[in-house]
Structures are given as structure tokens and as C-alpha cells.
């Protein structure tokens, strides 16, 4: 009651402001107000399940316990210890690292190149090109798999035929333990480029035109303008692109699923694929442990990216 009285009287005391709260407090309240819907949904639908699955990773819960999930034993860190001796998981971790370190830069470079060209390099048919480069994102994975398998066919595929013109004997891409992964990396870059392009196109809009015009007056060439204006101004969006692609690629899964089933000899087996397998086997405990190992890897990668790309002050 007392509190209420004070608050009721506050506006009068703090005239001409409408409320008696300081600007800082009001802004803080507004900010938490803005956060409220997200927080409420997050606490309800994410926090609980995350906690539950984290706990799972410390138990021996299998799919056969689903009906009665409380009747399981705590096994401490056993599931995590098992990871270190699981040769499939270790191989998958190495493969995923390979995929991320080659795939993320490749995809970002392609997407950025296309976005800049479509934003400034061309004027005619721009909308048409934009739509065209977005098509891989929306193409059904079934069609993608069929066409890419055909492209990479050892004898008759266009890729190897082109290589033959250059005097190179192309490998059996998808069944060769050395070349299967590079093939999937290129394919993933192709598939995800359009997604990032959309984000980068938006980011390019936040750069004031005047900066370019001023630079042009100063006689800066196209490359200089790109390096000194576009890149620094696009930093927040680039960071976003790098983080999202990194997170996505650490969970690399669909390409090996449709193209190689993780083979040959598990050389395209990814951590997410291994999790999917364990989940399918009904080993919810172990699948959770793998997921949280991946979770930690994602946090580390994101932290590094924030360090590398944070705004220079």
C-alpha cells in the first residue's frame, strides 16, 4: 500500500516529466518489456526441454525407458567419457572440423561476392538474378541429390568430363574417401550461398550512400571502396553471417544424409549425423551427451568469431 502511494504521487513531484522514474530506469523497463515475449516463450518451450535433455546425458535413458523416464540410473559423466573412446564419434568430430574450416569461408566469400555484385555491379535484371541465386535454397533436397550425383558421376558426369578436357583424370567423387568431403563442401556452399545472400543484401542497405559518393569524389576505386567502406560498415552483418554459418555447418547433416550416408568408410560422417544415428538407435542418453559436446564446440567457435569480427573502436 505504501509503495503504491509513493508511486501515485510521483508524477506530480517530478514534473515536467510524466513519470517520476529516471530516464535510465524507464529505458531499462522498456528494454525488459521488449524482452518479455521472447523470454516467456524461451523459458516455457526451450529452457525446460534443454534442462531435461541435459539431465538425460547424465543418465542411462534409452528409448525403452520412454514410457517411464524416471526409472533410470544416474551414470555421472560416463556418457561423456564414452565419447573419447568412440572411434566413429572422433572421426565425425575431425570431419566436422574439416567441413567447417573449409566450408564457412568458402560460403561467406561466395555469398558476399554475389550480394555485392547484385547490389551494385549490375542494374538490369537485378531482381531476376537475385531470385535465381536464391533457388538452391528452395530446391527440394531430392532434386538436389539427383542432380549433384549426376554432376559428380565418375564416367559420364559433366565435372569429370570438364576435367578430362583439361587433361585431368577426375576421381570417383562420392565413393572416394579423399574426395567425398570436398565434393560435399562445395555442394553445401552452393546450397547455403543464397541464404546468406539475403542477409548480406539487407546489410548492404544500412550503409549510407553518401559514404560511397564522398569516396568516389576522392577518387577511390571500386576495390578501395569495398575494402574501406563496405567491409567495415558490413561488420555486424558479416559477424552474423559467420556465426550463423558456423553454427549451421557444425550441425552439418543433410548433405551426407542424401549423398553418401556418411560414407565411404565414414569419411563424411558428421557429428550431427552421429547424433542422429544414436537418436535413431534409441540411445537418448548418449545422443544428448554428443549434442552437449557439440554445443560446447559451437560456443567456442562463436566466441572466436566474436573476437575476430568485433567492431574496432
Amino acid at each position: 500500500m505504501a509503495v503504491r502511494t509513493v508511486r501515485d504521487r510521483a508524477p506530480a513531484l517530478a514534473a515536467p516529466r510524466r513519470t517520476g522514474l529516471s530516464d535510465r530506469t524507464r529505458r531499462g523497463l522498456a528494454a525488459w518489456g521488449f524482452a518479455l515475449p521472447f523470454l516467456a516463450l524461451f523459458l516455457t518451450f526451450t529452457a525446460g526441454p534443454v534442462l531435461a535433455s541435459l539431465l538425460m546425458s547424465f543418465t542411462d535413458l534409452r528409448s525403452s525407458d520412454l514410457r517411464d523416464p524416471l526409472a533410470v540410473d544416474f551414470v555421472g559423466l560416463d556418457n561423456y567419457a564414452r565419447l573419447l573412446q568412440d572411434e566413429v564419434f572422433l572421426q565425425a568430430a575431425a570431419n566436422t572440423l574439416y567441413f567447417v574450416s573449409a566450408g564457412v569461408p568458402l560460403t561467406i566469400l561466395c555469398a558476399l561476392g554475389v550480394a555485392v555484385l547484385l547490389d551494385k555491379g549490375v542494374t538490369r535484371l537485378r531482381a531476376f538474378f537475385r531470385l535465381g541465386f536464391y533457388l538452391p535454397v528452395v530446391t527440394s533436397i531430392v532434386a538436389v541429390a539427383v542432380v549433384w550425383r549426376f554432376l559428380l558421376q565418375p564416367e559420364t558426369g559433366p565435372v569429370n568430363q570438364l576435367l578430362r578436357l583439361a587433361g585431368i583424370d577426375g576421381p570417383h567423387w562420392l565413393t572416394d574417401p579423399v574426395w567425398a568431403m570436398p565434393a560435399l563442401i562445395v555442394m553445401a556452399a552452393w546450397r547455403n550461398m543464397g541464404y546468406l545472400m539475403v542477409v548480406f543484401l539487407a546489410g548492404l542497405q544500412a550503409i549510407p550512400r553518401e559514404l560511397y559518393e564522398a569516396a568516389q569524389v576522392d577518387g577511390a576505386g571500386a576495390w578501395a571502396r569495398f575494402r574501406r567502406i563496405t567491409l567495415p560498415m558490413l561488420r555486424p552483418t558479416l559477424l552474423f553471417g559467420a556465426v550463423i554459418t558456423g553454427i549451421g555447418y557444425l550441425q552439418f547433416f543433410e548433405e551426407p544424409l542424401v549423398m553418401t550416408r556418411g560414407g565411404p568408410l565414414n569419411t563424411t560422417m558428421s557429428v550431427s549425423y552421429a547424433i542422429y544415428d544414436q537418436f535413431g538407435f534409441g540411445n537418448y542418453d548418449y545422443a544428448s551427451a554428443m549434442s552437449y559436446a557439440l554445443f560446447v564446440a559451437i560456443i567456442v567457435l562463436t566466441f572466436v568469431q566474436f573476437r575476430l569480427l568485433r567492431p574496432r573502436t
Partner: peptide, 17 residues
């Protein structure tokens, strides 16, 4: 952190909820 939450394993608990 929410962005990095592994989707597959929260699936069953989310459905139970």
C-alpha cells in the same frame, strides 16, 4: 546460447511438455 541449443535431443522432452 539459445541459438546453439542442439535441436534433436530437446525434441522428445518438448513433445512431452
Amino acid at each position: 546460447a539459445a541459438l546453439m541449443v542442439p535441436g534433436a535431443v530437446t525434441f522428445v522432452p518438448l513433445f512431452v511438455l
